[in-house]
Nucleic acid binder design. Structure first.
Ligand SMILES: NC(=O)c1ccc[n+]([C@@H]2O[C@H](COP(=O)([O-])OP(=O)(O)OC[C@H]3O[C@@H](n4cnc5c(N)ncnc54)[C@H](O)[C@@H]3O)[C@@H](O)[C@H]2O)c1
Ligand SMILES: NC(=O)c1ccc[n+]([C@@H]2O[C@H](COP(=O)([O-])OP(=O)(O)OC[C@H]3O[C@@H](n4cnc5c(N)ncnc54)[C@H](O)[C@@H]3O)[C@@H](O)[C@H]2O)c1
Lengths: 255, 255
DNA sequence: GAGTCTTTGTGCACGCGTTCACAAGGACAT
DNA sequence: ATGTCCTTGTGAACGCGTGCACAAAGACTC
């Protein structure tokens, strides 16, 4: 659990802010597209538009990498592709293991976008003995017993978990024990990991629930704005409209 | 470019902060698990631990919903499940369409966790004529020509895009024109949508690149700390303040 | 070489989110 | 009732991220 004890200057790393790191892949994708069209240079305004961000934000992001632009002209596309790739560590090869080759795991294994950026599926791993040896996306499925061997042999440091939620923590522990230090988790489970291990999660269910929240709010707004919607019907949400326009804010007690 | 002029308060909702909304599903999941074990009440400390967050943060999050706790005791599990569900809009049914029934789309269609929270797959849609009529996860695949009809008939307001990147914007435009106001995008494309439409994206490639960045940094640190690494073993890298895990960046586009 | 023009790089201010720390509030025992 | 103990709810401080606005800097023209 990530309770206290994290009393560190935090961003002691004069490195790149986390928010910036999360956007670099976005810029890289846009730049790659430009590169394929042989566009030599691009302005912050153009690139920002393509990446869907504010141009000032983009310039500030790039400023963390160094001064790679030319005032009055813009950024050299090829050069920037290289710099961002290098910064993200994409100039090297990252072997990856996928654990749990069911619906989702198989889809990921079949995903072409994997290899395109230096990520290579080193192995597919599943606990089901009947899967062993079968090929998925041209890669043989190995039994989970071999997990440690596979990781050591291939020097894998990134693991993807696509097992059912119940098995995720157990698989995670095993991955970490074997030396994995970065995990991408698709299971609906909050993984507990030791310090030094990064976990990122992708959770379809959470995303949908967030969308539902906003959807509900939009519906409530429309409803309160115009008592009767003249336009086409949009799921009149028959629920009793008990919930007013805005949740009541609890009274604040004076100190 | 719609620069300037767009001086809208953006977070017009003085309701629940976006960061809080993103955590509510996490709490809900933990609470549901407790509920299934018939645990009557839970303290902020316990629940926070289960959800992997700071307890003060959790209490503040709940305070936005109202005062649902009892001092000295904690929160009533069932009651809280209901309140959060209601707040997220999960007490109603949300029909969803999935567009692009390839590897990923099929995996999503097969995903059981969909129905568990009020989300119902109303239709699977694909452009490939040879897919039409075929069943995926017991649901017939419909041709994209029927998209508008399907959406209107079923009152769908949430769409999931799992087409190739090149088709994503086009599909998005069509969904929006048909009345969809929330989109979950799996394609590696920055979608342009009109105001009032929420887009959230799930991007495997970006997640991996972020992990690679941190992985590279960890490797560089280890290397500089000890000039020579004896084995392939990584040392317990007591990492400095580099907070890694929850680099969550909400992806709601204000448009 | 001087002037003009374009676009970068960044200082600065502001708002959101996180966390600490503690008083207020309620349950329970006596 | 009164006191004790526990946990909530939140005031306040702080740090991070964002976006405006502009000076600095290079390219290009004449
Ligand atoms: N399918 C989706 O679209 C989707 C979407 C969001 C989240 N998820 C989550 O992703 C996970 C996988 O979903 P799925 O639909 O592919 O499930 P699935 O049941 O099709 O596949 C799970 C696979 O994991 C294997 N497995 C089980 N325990 C294992 C273990 N201990 N070690 C190794 N392998 C093990 C199983 O043999 C099976 O092949 C689930 O946690 C699910 O909640 C799936
Ligand atoms: N498979 C993965 O694990 C994975 C992971 C991350 C991202 N993605 C992204 O998700 C998307 C889908 O991936 P996939 O592996 O399932 O691809 P896929 O090629 O297997 O499936 C794409 C499907 O979309 C359909 N399609 C194409 N154009 C369409 C249109 N205009 N309207 C409706 N349907 C259309 C195709 O007929 C096909 O069935 C891609 O953008 C991919 O980059 C996939």
């Amino acid at each position: 659990m990530a309770t206290g004890r994290n009393h560190r200057p935090a961003t002691r790393s004069r490195g790149i802010p986390e928010a910036t790191v999360a956007r670099l892949p976005l810029y890289l994708r846009a730049l790659t597209a430009l590169s394929e069209r042989s566009v030599p240079t691009v302005s912050s305004e153009e690139l920002a538009s393509a990446a869907g961000v504010n141009s000032a934000k983009l310039r500030k992001d790039f400023s963390y990498l160094g001064s790679y632009g030319t005032r009055g002209v813009g950024y050299d596309v090829e050069y920037l592709v290289y710099q961002i790739s290098r910064e993200l560590g994409l100039t090297q090869d990252w072997p990856v293991v996928i654990v749990g080759i069911g619906n989702l795991g198989a889809a990921l294994a079949n995903y072409g976008g994997f290899a395109s950026r230096g990520f290579r599926v080193a192995a597919l791993i599943d606990a089901d003995p009947s899967m062993s040896g079968k090929q998925v996306a041209g890669i043989p499925v190995r039994h989970v017993d071999e997990l440690e061997t596979i990781i050591h042999t291939n020097g894998v440091s990134i693991g993807v978990i696509t097992t059912p939620g119940g098995a995720a923590q157990q698989v995670c522990d095993r991955l970490v024990a074997a030396g994995i230090t970065s995990i991408l988790n698709f299971a609906p489970t909050v993984l507990q990991v030791p310090e030094g291990v990064d976990v990122r999660k992708v959770d379809l269910s959470i995303e949908l629930q967030i969308l539902a929240f906003h959807e509900q709010r939009k519906a409530a707004e429309d409803l309160s704005r115009e008592t009767a919607a003249p336009d086409r019907m949009r799921v009149p949400a028959e629920q009793r409209g008990e919930q007013g326009p805005e949740g009541d804010v609890p009274a604040v007690m004076p100190a």
